[in-house]
């Protein structure tokens, strides 16, 4: 396998980067960590004429808290940046854990949260937990900037609403009422396996009453999906194992998995039941974990 020829740009400002994207149109691709883009090019799944690297836009790697706004994660932060961020560890350890259990250390040192989102594979590990925590993404293009809730960002496998000249710059996590959140990944070995099913859960607990809940399912539909009926089933009720099982069954019914070499649709659906139940229980009992 070899890398086909391409032109390479590493602009030092965002406007310059967006300008290059506008100029090349569909023939250019952004490259961040390259852990998705380069394997795809080697496998001839894509053949951009130009790669626009974000490597000189170092402001995009910051992770910090801003009053009124929430936590801001630069799109070029790597999975290890996320895992090791004191800000995230304090507020949403669940995101750190999700990042820490991805891929392997080498990939976590290069792969970025922006790449994970834009790549938009159904099994991607970060979107479910980010959606559960109400993340909003900021997009900057030649015509200015806009924000989109991450939940509405994906339009199909490998597809998002980002425009050709836009760059994803920030993931914003507005302050949340959630008392607990977690992401559970079910892969076929302990490391270096993609999710067969991924379930993120966020809950607002008041004693043993679940005031609010979000359940986001990965790898079981063309895009990460909310299991909204299951959420409704849980809201306002006192939590019991029996209820969590019912919620799991409901979430399984909302999933739309396919069969592939990693698992049959039937298996995946049942794993949605199991991991919805387990994720909720964990978020309820252990907070952000």
């Amino acid at each position: 396998m070899y890398l086909p020829d391409f032109e390479y740009y590493a602009p030092s400002s965002l406007p310059e980067a967006c300008g290059l994207l506008a100029q090349f149109g569909a023939r250019a691709k952004v490259i961040a960590g390259g852990t998705d883009a380069l394997p795809k090019m080697k496998q001839e799944l894509m053949a951009p004429e130009a790669l626009v690297s974000l490597k000189n836009l170092s402001q995009l790697t910051n992770i910090f808290y801003e009053q009124e706004k929430g936590i801001i994660i630069g799109s070029r932060a790597t999975h290890n940046d996320l895992a090791n961020s004191p800000v995230l560890q304090e507020k949403y350890l669940s995101i750190c854990e999700a990042a820490h259990h991805m891929a392997n250390n080498q990939v976590r040192n290069r792969g970025t949260v922006g790449g994970n989102i834009i790549n938009a594979v159904p099994s991607a590990d970060l979107p479910p937990i980010l959606i559960a925590l109400g993340a909003i993404v900021k997009l900057v293009g030649t015509g200015g900037e806009r924000t989109v809730p991450l939940e509405e960002f994906f339009s199909g496998p490998g597809k998002t609403v980002i425009k050709q000249d836009e760059i994803l710059t920030e993931i914003i996590l507005p302050d949340q009422p959630f008392t607990g959140s977690t992401y559970m990944k079910f892969g076929l070995r302990r490391s270096g396996a993609l999710a067969v099913v991924g379930v993120a859960a966020a809950v607002v607990m008041d004693g043993d009453i679940c005031k609010d809940a979000r359940i986001v399912l990965g790898a079981v539909a063309p895009v990460p999906i909310r299991a909204k009926k299951a959420e409704e089933l849980l809201k306002g009720k006192s939590v019991t194992d029996g209820l969590l099982e019912e919620v799991g069954v409901c979430a399984a019914g909302e999933s739309k998995p396919i069969s592939d070499i990693r698992g049959s649709a039937e298996y995946r659906r049942d794993m949605v039941r199991v991991f919805t139940k387990r994720a909720l229980k964990k978020a309820i009992q252990e907070g952000h974990c």
Binding site: R190, S191, G192, I261, R262
Partner: peptide
């Protein structure tokens, strides 16, 4: 537990790589 060379219905290997041909890792 993990390893199997898998083919499509035309005899092409679906997992000719170390990502999907799952050798155990140290953690396993």
């Amino acid at each position: 537990v993990w390893e199997e060379v898998v083919f499509d219905d035309k005899g092409k290997i679906l997992n000719p790589n170390l990502g999907e041909y799952r050798l155990p890792t140290a953690l396993d």
